[in-house]
Amino acid sequence: MNYLPVEQVINPAAGTVSLAILIFLSLSGYYYMKLAEKGRTFPVRKIRAFEAIEEAVARSVEMGRPVHYTIGYGSIRTAHAPQYTAGLGVLTHVARLAGKYGARLIVTHGVPEAIASIDEIVRDGYFSEGRPELYNPVDNARYLTDVQFAYASSAQAVIIRENAGANIVIGPFWAESLILAEAGTMVGAFQIGGTARDVQIPFFVLVCDYAFIGEEIFAAGAMASGDIPTLASIRGQDVGKLLSIILIVLGLILLPLGVKLATYLMW
């Protein structure tokens, strides 16, 4: 039987090394999740922004003000899907806390595919904490529109008019990031922001009380699940970072020896 050579099976434009990295990271993630299922636990560094969420919700309740949450606008069918998913992950946590403390949660967004998911997540938060009477589908989850600034102008208006006590913004954001964060500042809300869209991170760092930087939103999404194997999958991300560090150091050592690692990685 004849086997096809690797360079023919794998699309050269996509890269064989890329596929190898993808498989390696998937396997390591899977390995740590399996270990966690068997009872192994891993220490996870605290993310201050994540820890602050509970305080934000509790404070809002004390002040008798609602909690505003948004995952942004856009379509989940684009490559930003993972960031929307991370936003939904943290929303589960916020919704449960809202149920626990009896907070009024207002979620605004402009992601049409996520309308059903958001309604359900908020409902689940109140129901699972035994506070179904606090759930009001029309008030709690508000789809605005998927047009960027129409969404932003309405979301900032909601924050101000409802006098939000906490303003939590997690997802992919574009130019509207500062609009949302500043609206929170205007009413003196406790602010937590996070995005993996690199250009917008500075605005959250500047304005929010706590900010998730890049990858931290994915880690927060996993932490929010409360599921130990899911949490353990973060270790797979760390393996990736160690791999990157090793590749960088190795490449730097090989460079004076005339070996260009970069060429091999592009295979």
């Binding site: 993808l22 990271l25 993630g29 991370a86 890049g214 996993a222 991300q237 990736g240 970072k241 990157s244």
Partner: peptide
């Protein structure tokens, strides 16, 4: 790099 890793692991999950 981190965002890429987060994406891969989320895809895995």
């Amino acid at each position: 790099i981190g965002v890429g890793l987060g994406t891969i692991i989320l895809g895995l999950r």
